[in-house]
Amino acid sequence: MGISAPSVPRVWRERIIKYRLLGSKCADCGKISYPPRKACPRCGSTNLVEISLPKRGKVLSYTVIRTPPRGYLKYSPYIIALIELENGARILAQLTDVDPDEVKSGMVVEAVFRRYREQGEDGIIEYGIKFRPPIT
């Protein structure tokens, strides 16, 4: 049991979107979404192009998960933030290398490649993008 049934193909299928932060931009209303879509969640247009998303943004809101779902106990407590990237796209991600009392809404963060979860001790490791206060 866990967040979703452990699956290798599922992780493989998503790897490029999650490793490199791919998104899409609606050619009609301009909305930029993560992950990439076939139809714009704002205006319904199907005139979308895939883009690479910026690796910096700011925290819109955040929380500290103290009662995590199965599969994330090892990392708890951890910070989840809603982040607005530099081009306006929004993404939900963990903040890392930062303590809860150091986080503020509006703070600038940068993307970093980290572990998200493991499919058990002997299963595959799932990686993705987290954010942290910029190194420089």
């Binding site: 599922r10 998503e14 951890y78 939900l92 963990q94 993705g128």
Partner: peptide, 25 residues
């Protein structure tokens, strides 16, 4: 922890639950 995992299925499993967000979160 299993109930928490079940409840977060109310959101996008691939891009929300993946982050470790709980529904409370």
């Amino acid at each position: 922890h299993d109930v928490t995992a079940a409840l977060i299925m109310a959101d996008d499993a691939e891009y929300t639950a993946f982050t470790g967000a709980s529904f409370v979160g």
